[in-house]
């Protein structure tokens, strides 16, 4: 039994060099439907409270995946874990083969994961253009950050165009309307070019017109990217979701379904849709059967 000499390897061998965040994104191997985001056995406890229990979740490239569920279902907690804000007690989160659990928030952004918050957070003392420029510059080293910026990068111009904020480029972000702040925040994500975007209640507090525009923005984002949307608004979900996952009390109730499947699922109706409808029209309809039919017709109207 003589020890096998390990063959010397070239230093630049891409097979052994750890992947650098600034490397171009690896083209995913041609495995059809291989999920970009893969979550397995995720659990988190706060004190004695189980916020999430045994959650499995997949999201594929190019889809708009809605995460719905009643208040306290653990939707935002799931987003917090993916983006490194909360550490899970058990389980794994892998993104494009990269393990995310244990990395700091800003490292996870460099892997290609971006998020927004329930309350839109933009830098109010800076202008719209400066907000976007800062978002687009996150890969620059300190020496380049210390230079005075001249003109806007293409990513910033694209974000201005897509969000419809070009007229407001020199306005301070604090002076924007509520809906515009949400769009600016989404635009900042877009300028960073992430492969996975997590939007936490992007249409909360928006008018119907603003909701439609936000939905169109989300459909635009989904070209070549994965968008995960946490939302309460069922109508919005019906109009813009590709896939839907339902969370209830920290567990997956229905994973990776279509809108129609979710609407037809009696358990989902019971915990979520049915209950909401019962609250609204208590006119003697028995929950499950009544909720399914009008929901389906709503869907046809929207489409």
């Amino acid at each position: 039994m003589s020890p096998q000499p390990t063959p010397p390897r070239a230093e630049g061998d891409p097979a052994i060099r750890p992947r650098h965040p600034s490397d171009p994104p690896q083209t995913p191997p041609e495995k059809a439907g291989e999920p970009l985001l893969r979550i397995r056995g995720l659990g988190v406890q706060f004190g004695g409270f189980h916020a999430l229990t045994d959650v499995d979740f997949d999201a594929r490239e190019g889809e708009v995946h809605f995460l719905i569920g009643p208040n306290g279902a653990g939707k935002t907690t799931l987003v917090d874990i993916i983006t490194g804000l909360t550490k899970p007690t058990t389980g794994s989160v892998s993104f494009d083969g990269q393990q995310l659990v244990g990395h700091k928030e800003h490292r996870i952004v460099h892997f290609g994961v971006g998020r927004t918050f329930q309350a839109a957070t933009v830098f109010e003392a800076l202008t719209v253009g400066e907000n976007l420029d800062l978002a687009a510059s996150y890969r620059l080293g300190l020496r380049r950050l210390l230079r005075q910026p001249r003109g806007h990068a293409d990513a910033v111009v694209e974000a201005l165009e897509v969000t419809g904020l070009a007229d407001e480029v020199d306005k301070s972000a604090g002076a924007l309307a509520h809906g515009q702040k949400q769009w600016l925040e989404i635009g900042m994500l877009l300028a960073q070019g992430p492969r996975l975007l997590l939007l936490d209640e992007p249409v909360a507090g928006m008018s119907p017109d603003e909701r439609t525009r936000t939905g169109e923005l989300i459909r635009y984002l989904a070209r070549g990217r994965t968008v995960l949307v946490v939302e309460h608004d069922m109508d919005f979900m019906r109009r813009f979701a590709d896939r839907v996952t339902v969370l209830h009390e920290g567990r997956i109730l229905r994973a990776d379904a279509t809108v129609a499947e979710v609407q037809a699922d009696p358990t989902v109706q019971e915990v979520y849709i049915g209950r909401a409808r019962d609250d609204r029209n208590s006119a003697g309809r028995s929950g499950a059967a009544a909720a399914g039919a009008p929901a389906a017709s709503d869907d046809e109207e929207a489409a």
């Binding site: 952004v109 957070t121 933009v122 003392a125 800062l134 960073q192």
Partner: peptide
């Protein structure tokens, strides 16, 4: 600008990378 951003919303800056 980044410094001002950190002053006003430090946690948001983390999620910009």
């Amino acid at each position: 600008r980044l410094l001002v951003a950190v002053r006003d919303a430090e946690d948001r800056v983390r999620f910009l990378g």
